[in-house]
Design a protein around this nucleic acid. Structure first.
Length: 297
DNA sequence: CCACTAACCTGTAGGC
DNA sequence: TGCCTACAGGTTAGTG
């Protein structure tokens, strides 16, 4: 489900209720998500106060008063929600019923202003996972990640460096979290459309023989930044089940130019193209064959 | 090191 | 209605 804009939307929804809250109890309702819960995970969280919720790429980072960092990745279908706002007594925290079979992690919180409430992690496919670290440098998941696409380190020069000599299609290169961290299948298709670049163009063809960025790389950087920024502004994209922690659906799905729009007209002004769908490395790519081009090598 | 595929797991949409 | 297939927002392990 979640690419960078969705994870950022989740973070913003969590912050008011989670930051400053003390973790009163933790229940793991199964031994694993994608991976086993780390040894002592529940014990380490219990009693700690969540001081801050940050995001790096598609990871949520809960900074605890103990100094430890609780890391959470939502996979394809992971989501957080709150229950039990009305309950004052910790003993009356939410317990999943029949329809809560994918509620895997239950976290009872006491917030100084909001009182007792329950944070629930739900994940039907269980591609998500959590981990616990002493500090960011100690997390293998955060090693080797490329720059944040909305940060200064993501620019035509750093992209050129990553693309030089690369034979992979630009679609695959942008999905590679070592190149840029946070893009997924939706926003790569959308950014390439904005930059008028074919997803099949080879990454190496966007760089000159001398290793300098071709002008189209500037368009690509701008396309990535603007599509992510606009998506965050409207709360991400809700395809089937994505919700922010407060239950709100995203709105960016109404603004897709090409993603999931096979057979529909290209929205580029004056363009007469019809959106096509192809499969690259096992995943759908959507593009306009008229206004998106592949540069010559 | 690079590039590609299969695998992980469940739910849903569409065709018949 | 039911059955079957294809596909879904991500990452990792394995192969060549």
């Amino acid at each position: 489900m979640p690419e960078l804009p969705e994870v950022e939307t989740v973070r913003q929804g969590l912050r008011p209720y989670v930051e400053g809250a003390r973790i009163d109890a933790v229940t793991l309702r199964r031994p694993n998500l994608r991976f086993a819960f780390p040894e002592g995970f529940a014990t380490a969280l219990t009693g700690a106060t969540i001081e801050q919720v940050d995001r790096r790429a598609k990871y949520l980072l809960f900074r605890l008063s103990t100094g430890a960092i609780w890391l959470s990745h939502l996979g394809m279908t992971g989501s957080y929600r709150f229950e039990g706002f009305k309950h004052k007594e910790p003993s009356r925290y939410y317990e999943p019923g029949e329809d809560g079979k994918h509620d895997h992690l239950i976290i009872a919180l006491i917030h100084p202003e909001h009182g007792a409430l329950t944070l629930i992690y739900n994940d039907a496919r269980r591609f998500g996972f959590v981990d616990l670290f002493a500090d960011e440098a100690a997390s293998p998941y955060l090693q080797g990640l490329g720059p944040e696409p909305l940060g200064n380190a993501f620019n035509a020069a750093t992209l050129a460096l990553a693309f030089t000599g690369k034979k992979a299609p630009i679609k695959a290169a942008l999905l590679d979290q070592r190149v840029v961290a946070g893009l997924g299948n939706i926003y790569v298709s959308e950014a390439l459309h904005r930059a008028h670049l074919m997803p099949t163009a080879l990454a190496g063809t966007l760089v000159t023989k001398r290793g300098a960025p071709k002008p189209v790389l500037e368009d690509l950087v701008l396309g990535v930044r603007t599509v992510l920024t606009e998506a965050i502004e409207v709360g991400g994209s809700t395809l089937r089940d994505f919700r922010a922690a407060d239950g709100q659906q995203g709105g960016f799905q109404h603004r897709f130019s090409v993603y999931d729009r096979e057979g529909k007209p290209c929205p580029t002004p004056l363009c007469t193209g019809i959106v096509e769908r192809i499969v690259q490395s096992g995943r759908s790519s959507f593009f306009c064959p008229v206004c998106q081009k592949a540069p010559r090598a």
